[in-house]
């Protein structure tokens, strides 16, 4: 089903935010909408968005490529994005992600065998006083998890597992 058929109200709301002659501004919110489906953006969705906005597919694809929260490849149901930037690293983030990966039996960038979680190291998430911290990106959006330990993160993964079961 196309985005236009599936999300007519959401799309209308998105376009209402921008001047009618500036439709292209809707590309970022529309891409988030497209990503809700499978956690990544398909070629078909990019073509549909390009059509809605009257721009080239390449112009949509360059947005997907430029911004890190858009994905064009399938990963785990949840991306577990751990901040390992300077302020978090000063409070143990590097050790945290290493131990987390060890517990899950994956390397950074890899997905757990059950396809639930992909562990990623990301840049600053503006929660430096609550390190170690991570965000989970799934089809339902992005959530912050702060002051984390490996045990708490494993509990979180269990909860995610139950929620999708």
């Amino acid at each position: 089903m196309s985005l236009a058929e599936k999300y007519p109200q959401e799309i209308q709301k998105i376009f209402a935010k921008y001047p009618p002659e500036q439709k292209r501004s809707a590309v970022m919110p529309l891409l988030y909408l497209a990503q809700r489906e499978e956690g990544f953006i398909t070629k078909g969705a990019m073509e549909e968005i390009a059509g809605m906005l009257g721009i080239k597919v390449t112009e949509v694809a360059e947005i997907v490529g430029f911004y890190t929260l858009y994905h064009d490849e399938k990963a785990g149901k949840y991306r577990m994005q751990v901040c390992t930037d300077l302020p978090c690293a000063l409070r143990g983030a590097d050790k945290f992600i290493e131990e987390l990966c060890g517990n899950l039996g994956v390397k950074v960038g890899e997905t757990t065998e059950d396809g639930l979680v992909t562990v990623e190291a990301v840049m600053c998430l503006a929660a430096c006083d609550k390190a170690p911290m991570l965000q989970t990106q799934g089809s339902d959006g992005i959530n912050y998890h702060e002051n984390m330990t490996v045990d708490k993160t494993l509990e979180l993964i269990e909860a995610l597992k139950k929620s999708v079961a």
């Binding site: 500036q22 292209r24 501004s25 970022m28 858009y70």
Partner: peptide, 21 residues
């Protein structure tokens, strides 16, 4: 308007480009 993960968009003209799609 939500960005999508790019530090550079804190620079004001990059931010405006981003809103413009």
């Amino acid at each position: 308007h939500l960005g999508a993960g790019a530090y550079i968009c804190g620079e004001e003209t990059a931010l405006l480009e981003s809103i413009e799609g």
